[in-house]
Amino acid sequence: MIKLLGAAMVVASSGIGGMTVAGRYSRRPRELKSLGYALQMLETEISYGANHMKVALEQVANRCDQAVAPLFSRAAAELSAAAGITAAAAWENSLCAYYRESALNPQDLIILRSLGSSLGISDRADQVKHLNLAMEQIKSENAKAEGEAARNVKLWNYLGFLGGLLVVLILY
């Protein structure tokens, strides 16, 4: 009886582990896509709205997808809370907090970080250029991530459960 219970626990835990890995793979393209849309909104806010950075970030946070909203709302909050902080520093802080909870890769972090260093320190045309560059890079990362997800999600879902079953069978 207790042996059966242990076997069920091994299968369940390895299955959940596999599903977690698969979840990371399937979450990343979605987050990248909504990040691309959000950056597009930010570009609109900067180039046509000509709003303050704080207001622009708040607007984007209100309208963009729930998955990436914390990145923008936190940056806006930091900008409005700490007097004297630059937009780049606020973006950096917000990015660090967001990265830990997201499914993004280190490459995505590099793209967003290099975008942050040019945010809010130059004229509209220059910022739009940097935003366009980041959007292009995110788009290409998204294409890669979708290919990876198509290959790996199913694989890890099966691999977790089958690996657990194999361990149970070998140790039983």
Binding site: R151, K154, Y158, L159, L162, L166
Partner: peptide
């Protein structure tokens, strides 16, 4: 189990 795992891994490249 090994046969199924092998098929899945092969399908995933």
């Amino acid at each position: 189990l090994v046969a199924v795992l092998n098929a899945i891994l092969k399908q995933a490249g």
